[in-house]
Amino acid sequence: MDHVLELGGRESINRSLAAARVGGRIMIIGVLSGFSQEIAMRSIYGKNLHLIGLSVGSRRHFEDMCQAIAEHQLRPVIDTTLPFESVPDGLRRMESGAHQGKICVDFGG
């Protein structure tokens, strides 16, 4: 991959390093598992990767993003939608790292 968006999930940084092409860029946009991670340094050096930490932008950036999402009809990737009573199952799935996309909770309202 030329560009990888890294959300900071458990062990996902090393999957992102593996997925990036030589000279690729990894944008770190979250720290879901905390600020301390074990990183495969060999991948960074061996592939000449660029790791870039991104923080939240301005209100104008947010408004522009919302407009682009609406204009291009972008939709999130949803892995699973669970009823509220199955939240523990969703948390276990998230902890396992087996999900690909968002785990949603349906409150049945």
Rank of each mutant, 00 (worst) to 15 (best):
G23P: 08
I69T: 08
E6C: 09
T80A: 04
S36L: 14
A70C: 12
V77C: 05
L51M: 06
R75G: 06
S36W: 11
F84H: 01
H72N: 14
H72R: 15
R15L: 13
H3V: 10
L74A: 12
Q37C: 08
R92N: 13
G34R: 10
E71P: 02
E38L: 05
R93S: 00
I28T: 01
V77I: 08
I44F: 00
D79P: 01
H50V: 04
V56W: 03
R92E: 14
A20R: 04
Q100G: 00
Y45T: 15
G9L: 02
L51E: 02
I26W: 01
I29L: 15
C104R: 08
Q37P: 01
G30Y: 10
N48I: 01
G46P: 12
S96N: 04
N48C: 12
S55D: 01
L51V: 11
V105K: 15
R42C: 06
S33I: 06
E6T: 06
Q67P: 00
L82V: 08
A70E: 07
D89E: 15
Q67S: 13
G90V: 00
E6A: 05
A40T: 07
S96E: 02
R92I: 04
F84S: 03
C104E: 07
L17W: 09
I69S: 11
M27A: 15
E6Y: 06
V105P: 13
R59E: 13
R21V: 01
I29Q: 05
R10M: 12
I69C: 11
Q100S: 06
P76E: 04
I29F: 15
I52N: 02
P88C: 08
Q73L: 13
H3A: 14
H61T: 05
D64S: 12
I13K: 01
I13S: 02
R59V: 09
P76K: 04
A18I: 02
L54H: 03
S86L: 05
T81E: 14
F84R: 04
